[in-house]
Amino acid sequence: MKTLEVRNLFKHYEKFDLKNVSFEIKPGKIIGFIGRNGAGKTTTLKCIYNLAKPTSGEVLYDSKPIIDVEADYKQEAAMLIGEMNYYGTKTVKSLTNVTKKFYKDWDEDLYHRYLETFNIDENKQIKALSTGMKVKYGLALALSRGAKILLLDEPTSGLDPVSRDELLDIFLDLVSDKEHSILFSTHVISDLEKCADDIIYIKKGEIIVNESVSTFESAYLHYEGPSEILGKNASKFIFYRDRLGKFEGIMKKKDEIDAEEGVEKRKASMEEIMVAFERGEQE
């Protein structure tokens, strides 16, 4: 079982720094990679696939630096950034015919099954595919090449809800053999709730959460009620809104307070936690 390890990754840009990013991708896991636009998700993914050169730190696959085993590593790891928007005037068929030559474990039957599932016409030009279709085509290529690790940058963006649900089912089927693993970035929090085992949360270039989805979800509480009860507890909330006599806020479970009468307390949703993380400093 081969593991992908990201160790102490730093990447300096003029206006952005990726700082000390470390995590592991183990077989059998689906990891959701979340954070705001510009938080460093794509930069991290690019460093993991040697598309961007880290300022320091390393990425190891099967305990070897990916730089040393780049071609072999890329046989076993697939990267998909957004939609498949290359060589617009070529047909799906001609681009596939070139692409598949590079993969020794290419599964032609599986590829055609995905084309059928995703309703992609092989004879269409790439530029004639809709955004959603381009995403699906990229996924069909990535899933048919026998990669053990899938690194997907917002794979569900541009997909309709049904296609998104189908895709998440495919993800779950894929990792059920305990050989595959998936790291996917997304803004669609419901995707994570449906299929992710673990969550990696990046904010301003730093990983601030790296734990199982269930641990993450159960660590925060949501309170809602009249403003008066906020009182002395305000400092315990990592984020709250107090508008027109009503308030709602997110608090860590370890800081839990008793809910007074008229206050609703429940487990916070992932989306609420994410908003609290990002806006907590602002309000």
Binding site: Y49, L51, E70, Y73, K74, L80, Y87, G88
Partner: peptide
């Protein structure tokens, strides 16, 4: 225009 480098860089090859 065809994003040739982007496509090629995703293939299992050295940069």
């Amino acid at each position: 225009a065809n994003k040739d480098i982007e496509y090629t860089s995703l293939l299992p090859i050295k940069k």
